[in-house]
Simulated scan of single mutants.
Amino acid sequence: MNHGAIDDISQISFIREAALALLCPKPPRRDLFSDGVLFLRHDVTFHRELHRRGGEPLPIELWVETIRGRTFTLQSRARCDGHAVFSGKSVLAVRQRGRRDAKSGARPMTEAERSYLERFTVPQLRLSR
């Protein structure tokens, strides 16, 4: 019995939703990730049990750790009442039109995509404060 605890799969879904919110700005831009992204890997560390919050949103910190030719790595951390409840590292690739598998589905990043992601690296985030 979980007494309102949120399971691991839901916590990974929170990370995916936060990543997609970062990668799909409003208003949409045609030059960014137009064919979507592939989630290649999630490594998640669970620090404490997370319980349902009665509709209250769970803040998730998200930043870009590395940017490579076809892939990039996002770091994430969720806090509740001042304590980290989970943290993660996700590797994503820019999807190539018509391809869905990780091996052949990634394409090189465009300069616009690379520039967009660079805004969310730790050094850039420190400068923007």
Rank of each mutant, 00 (worst) to 15 (best):
Q11L: 15
L62D: 08
E118T: 01
L23W: 04
E49N: 14
K103C: 09
T45L: 13
L22A: 12
S104N: 00
G54Y: 03
P28C: 07
V94G: 00
T45R: 14
G54R: 15
L92D: 01
W63D: 07
R77T: 12
F14P: 11
P123C: 09
F72E: 00
E65A: 07
P28R: 13
K26L: 13
S115K: 03
R16G: 07
S87D: 14
D81F: 13
F33H: 10
D81N: 15
Q75K: 11
L32D: 09
A21Y: 04
D35G: 03
F120P: 04
A112I: 05
F46G: 10
L58F: 12
T45A: 11
T110L: 10
F72M: 08
R119G: 03
G98N: 02
V85T: 02
E56F: 12
L32Q: 03
I9D: 03
F72G: 04
I15T: 04
L40I: 06
R77S: 05
D35Q: 10
W63R: 10
P28I: 00
V94R: 01
H83V: 11
H47N: 13
L50S: 10
L58H: 02
E65K: 08
F120M: 12
R77V: 02
T121Y: 06
P28Y: 09
A84K: 03
G55K: 14
E65D: 14
V91E: 08
D81S: 14
G105E: 09
D8A: 07
D8Q: 00
R119F: 00
S104M: 02
A93Q: 00
A84E: 07
R30T: 13
P123Q: 07
D81H: 14
S13A: 06
Q75S: 06
H42E: 13
F86P: 15
F14N: 09
G55V: 15
Q11C: 07
R68D: 05
L40D: 03
S10T: 15
R16I: 07
V122H: 01
W63G: 12
I67C: 10
G98C: 10
L58S: 12
K89C: 13
A19Q: 04
P108S: 09
I9F: 08
E17L: 13
I67P: 06
I9H: 01
R48W: 11
T45Q: 14
K103T: 12
T66G: 05
F33C: 09
G98Q: 10
D81C: 12
V85D: 05
D101P: 05
D43T: 15
Q96V: 06
R16E: 03
R114L: 04
E118Q: 01
G69Q: 12
F33N: 09
L40R: 06
S90H: 10
C80R: 11
A112K: 05
S115N: 11
Y116W: 08
S34A: 15
P57N: 12
E111L: 00
R16W: 05
E17P: 06
H42V: 12
L20H: 00
G82W: 09
P28F: 05
R41W: 06
R16H: 13
E17T: 12
A102K: 07
R52G: 15
G105Y: 09
F86M: 14
R114F: 08
E113D: 06
G54C: 14
T110S: 13
L22G: 02
P25G: 08
R68C: 08
L40W: 01
G88W: 06
R68G: 03
F86L: 14
R70N: 02
M109C: 04
A78G: 04
T66W: 02
V91D: 10
G36R: 00
R52P: 07
D81I: 11
I60C: 14
